[in-house]
Every structure is written in C-alpha cells, then in structure tokens.
Amino acid sequence: MLVEDDQSISEMVGHYLTKEGFEMVHAFDGEEGVRLFHQGSYDLILLDIMLPKLNGMDFLKIIRQESNIPVLMISAKDGEVDKALGLGFGADDYIAKPFSMIELTARVKAAIRRATQYSAEEPAESKVIRIHQLAIDIDNVSVMKNGEPLQLTSTEWQLLCLFAANPKKVFTKEQIYRSVWNEEYFGDQNIINVHMRRLREKIEDDPSAPQYIKTLWGIGYKLGEF
C-alpha cells in the first residue's frame, strides 16, 4: 500500500512497482490509509510523512499497535530529526524525496525479504541461543527475556541474530548494513543508530548502559560478555 497525497508521485510509483510485479493499493490521506489497512492484507506500506487528515507519524502509531508490517517512510524532509522520529515510531526504513525508482524498488524488496525471513515457518527442531537472560530461538523466530516474550521487528530480529551468531566478532556499521540490509552502505549511520537504540530499549535492563550489545566507539558494535 502506498499512502501518498501527491497524485503524480502516487501514479509514478504505482506504475513502476506494478511493472516490477507488485499489486498496489493507493491511499491519499492518513485516514483513508488506516481504513484500507484494516480492510486488506499487505506485505509492505510506503508511507509519506506529510499527509492530510492524519499525518504519517500518527498513522504509524496506530498500525504499530496491531502489526509489525514493514513500513518504508518517504518524505521531502531529509533532516536527521525526521529520520530519527520516523524510525523511532517503528518504521523499518526511510527514503528521501527525490528518490530514484531503482533505489525505491531495492528498498521495498529488501524490506519484504527481511519480513519474510522473520516470519518463516517453524521447523521440526529448534536452535536456541542463550545469552544471560535472553533465549533466542533461531528456528521459531522468537526471543524471550526472563521467560517473557519480546516483540521485535524483522530488522531488530536480524540485528540481534547477527550478534548472537557471532559472539566474538566486532561489526563495523558498514558490515552491519551489508549483513542486515543486503545493500551497499553509503554512510547513513542514523538508520543503524536508531534501529540499535530501539533494539536496546527492548532487550537491555538499562538501554543507556547496554550490556548485551556493546558500543566500541569509533569502531562499531559487539556482543557483550556475561
């Protein structure tokens, strides 16, 4: 679903993604987007920030109460505040206008691919990685802390699995982006920073003093030792 009030952009994006094999549903304001969201089933939402009736941030807060569907924010505002705010509200990725259709399509496919991996069917046997109070069930795609389930987005899940599967390795931001986003890294550190902050808010006792995922200043991140 594309929620975009600019008719020309909506038509351009819809035409291109349809040629790429996607079925498109269009909404032209936030209220219409919420209504269509509750009426259908979608693989991804492309969401503009500046919308009439209900803005993109409020739209995102509503659907995040009931769904972890991938959301790709699009906006003419390319400031760091907008990026942090959009991702902080639960968006999976962010792209600024003007954007190329090739880049947009790559971002859409990558987000859907991550979500598909996150919701993989349960196999016969399960591999569980235990790190202090965390139990990371790789095959069943679930995380528990002190016996209580944690609700992670597909991106947060893949970040956690990356560190859990490589407990001794230090990852630079470029390596993290290549591993999780499967794309070339162009130095947009804010996307990684915000996702890491959201993950820490869910798994850490004190996100301001993280123990599970440590920051190595000027280098990157690594799994903490207990």
Results as ranks from 00 to 15, higher is better:
residue 178 R to N: 09
residue 4 E to L: 04
residue 71 V to G: 00
residue 34 V to N: 10
residue 13 V to F: 04
residue 65 Q to V: 00
residue 21 G to Y: 06
residue 171 F to W: 13
residue 185 Y to R: 07
residue 45 I to K: 02
residue 137 D to E: 15
residue 71 V to N: 04
residue 43 D to M: 00
residue 156 E to R: 09
residue 206 D to K: 13
residue 184 E to I: 03
residue 38 H to Q: 13
residue 114 R to Y: 07
residue 104 L to M: 07
residue 120 A to M: 15
residue 187 G to P: 03
residue 28 F to A: 06
residue 208 S to K: 14
residue 118 Y to L: 04
residue 83 K to M: 14
residue 57 M to Q: 08
residue 151 Q to T: 14
residue 222 K to D: 05
residue 156 E to F: 08
residue 115 A to H: 15
residue 185 Y to A: 06
residue 129 I to Y: 10
residue 83 K to V: 12
residue 162 L to A: 06
residue 94 Y to M: 01
residue 5 D to Y: 05
residue 205 D to A: 11
residue 15 H to S: 10
residue 139 D to V: 05
residue 162 L to P: 10
residue 28 F to K: 10
residue 105 T to Y: 14
residue 86 G to L: 00
residue 159 L to N: 03
residue 34 V to M: 13
residue 65 Q to K: 08
residue 210 P to Y: 12
residue 106 A to V: 06
residue 138 I to H: 08
residue 108 V to Q: 01
residue 109 K to M: 07
residue 196 M to L: 14
residue 66 E to L: 01
residue 125 E to H: 09
residue 146 N to K: 08
residue 34 V to Y: 08
residue 183 E to P: 01
residue 212 Y to E: 09
residue 202 K to V: 11
residue 36 L to H: 01
residue 87 L to D: 00
residue 138 I to Q: 09
residue 25 V to D: 15
residue 91 A to T: 12
residue 28 F to C: 06
residue 135 A to F: 15
residue 22 F to T: 03
residue 140 N to W: 11
residue 109 K to G: 03
residue 99 F to K: 08
residue 91 A to I: 10
residue 37 F to A: 07
residue 180 V to G: 02
residue 163 F to V: 12
residue 186 F to Q: 13
residue 194 V to L: 01
residue 219 I to M: 09
residue 226 F to H: 11
residue 130 R to N: 14
residue 217 W to Y: 14
residue 176 I to L: 13
residue 69 I to F: 04
residue 216 L to S: 04
residue 19 K to V: 10
residue 216 L to W: 01
residue 67 S to W: 01
residue 33 G to E: 01
residue 177 Y to R: 11
residue 115 A to F: 14
residue 12 M to E: 08
residue 138 I to S: 07
residue 155 T to M: 06
residue 212 Y to M: 10
residue 198 R to A: 05
residue 35 R to D: 12
residue 214 K to M: 12
residue 74 I to R: 01
residue 45 I to T: 10
residue 60 L to C: 08
residue 216 L to A: 07
residue 59 F to M: 09
residue 115 A to K: 11
residue 201 E to M: 14
residue 101 M to L: 14
residue 135 A to L: 12
residue 125 E to K: 13
residue 149 P to S: 12
residue 133 Q to R: 15
residue 75 S to I: 06
residue 167 P to T: 02
residue 209 A to E: 12
residue 144 M to C: 08
residue 90 G to I: 11
residue 105 T to A: 13
residue 204 E to I: 03
residue 140 N to T: 10
residue 117 Q to S: 07
residue 148 E to M: 08
residue 64 R to H: 12
residue 110 A to Y: 05
residue 197 R to V: 00
residue 182 N to P: 02
